[in-house]
């Protein structure tokens, strides 16, 4: 019973933590992007607009819940819930410190990849059930993109698995704490794998330069075109949670996770995750969007061959 209770409390703490960080992560992104464009961002609600996420939440809760006449209601309503569920579910196996972890399972990396694979379904469901040309086009683009980028994502995630000899995310972090971080040791192997993982992760979470599925200048808002109120909020939230959790995963797999001097592990983990999170938004607000065919070409011509080579390299490094 005690074990169950501990797990429940830890999971609840992680859930609340992730949601809180995400809410103010959105505030941070708005401020950050505003500064990049010589604007001020949110300033009205609370000091330096800090209460803006709460105001947004209140606004979204009050909005009318619209469902298009010709939509497939059941699928349409289910899609945002599954999207948010998948994004939050991935946080379960991320070790935020040596002890703060939702579920320590042997196959943590496999679990993460499996959850990532399921994430495609709600995107398709939303795109199809909306019965809207823009939503459908966005859904198709998202599917093609996720399907392609899953290959380099899985292969590059295998590099730390092979080096550490375990699929347990905690064990991978412990391996890095004992030796060197995977991103720098061996650097010819770890760094490209880290960059590949980051690129594939950006593509999976539909972030610029990979946000073709919801390119607002051509597709209105992609799969979220027909969504309003809380359902839109769930998609929006799911996307940010996905980016945040993916940053945490990347820092656990490649940047040593909670390993670091002077401060407790949790601080380092949060710091690294937020640094990556910021990097994602930096890229988002600095770069242009790719074209769909350029995106596919980059994946299949460059990322996949490189990731296969890295996988072989990792094997050779371990054996030799």
């Amino acid at each position: 019973m005690n074990v169950v209770l501990t797990a429940l409390v830890t999971s609840l703490a992680i859930l609340v933590g992730v949601l809180t960080v995400t809410a103010w992560g959105i505030w941070f992104e708005r401020k950050f992007s505003a500064r990049l464009q010589s604007r001020l961002g949110p300033t009205m609600v609370g000091p330096v607009g800090l209460a803006q996420p709460l105001a947004d939440l209140m606004k979204l809760l009050q909005k009318e819940d619209l469902v298009p006449e010709a939509a497939d209601r059941a699928v349409f309503n289910l899609a945002p819930q599954i999207a948010a569920l998948c994004a939050l579910g991935a946080a379960a196996v991320v070790p935020f410190s040596a002890h703060i972890i939702g579920a320590q399972i042997d196959l943590g990396v496999l679990y993460l990849l499996a959850i990532g694979a399921v994430t495609v379904m709600p995107v398709f469901m939303a795109g199809w059930a909306s019965n809207n040309k823009f939503a459908l086009l966005g859904g198709m683009r998202a599917l093609a993109q996720s399907l392609s980028y899953e290959v380099p994502l899985v292969l590059s995630a295998m590099v730390p698995v092979i080096l550490a000899g375990s699929m347990d995310v905690s064990k991978i972090v412990e391996y890095q704490a004992a030796g060197s971080w995977i991103a720098i040791g061996p650097v010819w192997l770890g760094l490209p794998a880290f960059v590949l993982f980051l690129l594939a992760m950006l593509a999976e979470s539909n972030r610029i330069p990979f946000d073709i599925p919801e390119a607002e200048s051509e597709l209105v808002a992609g799969i979220t075109t027909e969504y309003s109120g809380m359902k839109f909020a769930l998609f929006y939230l799911g996307e940010y949670v996905h980016t945040l959790v993916a940053s945490a995963v990347a820092s656990a797999l490649f940047l040593g996770g909670w390993d670091g001097p002077f401060a407790p592990g949790l601080h380092w983990m949060v710091l690294k995750s937020l640094a990556l999170f910021t990097f994602v938004y930096w890229v988002r607000w600095s770069l242009l969007r790719f074209r769909s065919d350029q995106l596919m070409k980059m994946c299949w011509y460059w990322l996949v061959p490189i990731s296969v080579a890295l996988l072989l390299g990792a094997g050779a490094w371990v054996v030799l």
Binding site: I105, D106, L107, L110, Y111, L113, A114, I115, G116, A117, V118, V120, M121, F124, W128, L136, G139, M140, L143, A144, S146, L147, E150, V154
Partner: peptide
């Protein structure tokens, strides 16, 4: 059999079902 479970989700839900969906869409 957790490994089998993970691979089942990865290949069947993430791969096969997605491809079918893609087929329907196209």
């Amino acid at each position: 059999a957790p490994f089998l479970a993970g691979v089942q989700v990865l290949t069947y839900v993430g791969g096969v079902a997605t491809l079918m969906v893609f087929g329907v869409m196209v």
